[in-house]
């Protein structure tokens, strides 16, 4: 055992244990760590945004370079503080509207591009490929069969999944059948996502255990 002499490492290790204690139940150690976390991080972001946004992008251009346009974000920002005065609190809606308008406007074409057109193009694959058929006939195996049916299955899957999201019709008849198949694809997809993530999550825990065992306790190298 080779305990760390660094008080910062001790602090980090003790806070780590405080958070883990929540797994047993809520307790004063967790509460203290949680409240400290909230206070410090809230302060951290205020300081960081002052140094990285307000000072270089507003204070310097406005007061040192005379760029008057920078008054606009300053005013929009100041409008938020009107919320502290109930009678004129509605002024903050102007800043909120600016934010929402920009966000909504930016999302429309970007969504059409990335979430719709690109996905449509990705789905427009040959339903049947002679190449994969020949591979399968010459060498029938699980892999070549998988390659043969993979793309058609994907195309059918996209159509059926999309039909699950039909809202203005009762899911009966053909639509009902398609959406049932869509649910099967959805569940397999969710399972795949779940399974894919497990190892990544376990490695996070390994990282913290390594910190405790190596950096703090010095039990392992």
């Amino acid at each position: 055992m080779n305990l760390s002499p660094d008080p910062w490492v001790w602090l980090a290790a003790l806070l780590t244990l405080c958070i883990y204690s929540f797994l047993y139940k809520d307790n004063p150690f967790y509460k203290a760590a949680e409240h400290l976390f909230v206070g410090l991080s809230a302060g951290y972001f205020l300081v960081i945004y002052w140094y990285n946004a307000v000072y270089p992008d507003m204070v310097v251009p406005l007061f040192k370079q005379g760029k008057l346009l920078c008054i606009i974000p300053g005013l929009l920002g100041l409008f938020f503080f009107f919320r502290f005065i109930p009678k004129v609190g509605w002024v903050s809606r102007w800043s909120i509207a600016f934010y929402i308008g920009v966000g909504a406007g930016m999302s429309i074409p970007a969504t059409m591009q990335m979430r719709i057109l690109e996905q449509m193009k990705g789905t427009m694959q040959p339903f049947f490929s002679l190449e994969t058929w020949h591979v399968f006939v010459e060498n029938p195996s699980l892999a070549s069969f998988g390659a043969l049916i993979g793309i058609p299955l994907m195309i059918v899957g996209v159509m059926c999944t999309l039909s699950y999201f039909f809202f203005s019709r009762e899911h009966k008849g053909v639509l009902g059948g398609m959406s049932r198949i869509g649910i099967i694809f959805l569940m397999i997809g969710f399972g795949a996502s779940f399974g894919y993530t497990v190892m990544a999550r376990i490695s996070l825990l390994i990282g913290r255990v390594q910190f405790l065992m190596s950096d703090w306790l010095g039990v392992i190298d």
Partner: peptide
Amino acid sequence: NPNMAAKRG
């Protein structure tokens, strides 16, 4: 394949 189909949908 099936996962990609679900994601695209």
